[in-house]
């Protein structure tokens, strides 16, 4: 299995390290032809406006959006969640996103959060993080904070977190993404 990591801006190497620990091969996706030969793609944390502009400039936004619409597996963290939830960006998750939803950097925080399907809490690192106000019927909430803000969700081929699993040593979300790719490949086989 080869998982691509979108390499335009942001925490790219952190995702590569995490996926490598999980025993899968990775490929940096810096331009359109790089999208060939991968089984799934990670859209990392970074500045969502910057990543979006670079996707447009590289003429990658429309092809990637098309791939996602066709069921290609994609995992977005923080900025990646923003791009996947925006209709005008990757439109992969039916949800209403609030960018910088917790405030400025001063308000960035760490918290233990409960995640559906995980035996123990996950250490969430929220950095100028977004959140989902709501999700549509096709999406499943994986984690929400006590005040109801949705911070992790899943929808068929799409996995999103508002926080940064790539800044921890806990690979459970990356493993979840690998399992998602696995199960899709089994269905298609």
């Amino acid at each position: 299995m080869v998982i691509g990591v979108l390499d335009l801006q942001g925490a790219v190497s952190e995702h590569v390290n995490m996926l490598t620990q999980c025993g899968v091969d990775t490929k940096l996706i810096n331009e359109l032809p790089d999208l060939d030969g991968i089984d799934g793609i990670v859209v990392p944390g970074g500045e969502s406006t910057t990543i979006r502009k670079l996707l447009v400039r590289e003429q990658m936004l429309a092809p990637l959006k098309q791939l996602v619409a066709e069921g290609f597996p994609v995992f977005g963290t923080c900025a990646g969640l923003v791009l996947l939830a925006q209709k005008e960006s990757l439109n992969g998750l039916d949800g209403d996103v609030e960018r910088n939803g917790f405030g400025r950097q001063r308000e960035s925080f760490e918290a233990k959060i409960d995640v559906n399907g995980f035996d123990t809490p996950f250490h969430g690192v929220f950095i100028r993080a977004p959140y989902l106000k709501s999700v549509g019927n096709s999406a499943t909430v994986l984690s929400k904070l006590e005040d109801g803000r949705i911070v992790a969700a899943k929808q068929e081929n799409v996995l999103v977190t508002a926080f940064h699993p790539e800044l921890t040593n806990d690979a459970r979300f990356h493993q979840l993404f690998i399992d998602l790719i696995d199960s899709k490949q089994r269905v298609n086989a």
């Binding site: 390499d7 970074g46 500045e47 950097q105 308000e107 925080f109 940064h164």
Partner: peptide, 17 residues
């Protein structure tokens, strides 16, 4: 809030920019 991880992590999110 204000932990080493969120402070350094903020800078990591700026990489390549």
């Amino acid at each position: 809030t204000g932990t080493t991880l969120v402070k350094r992590g903020m800078a990591q999110m700026q990489k390549g920019g």
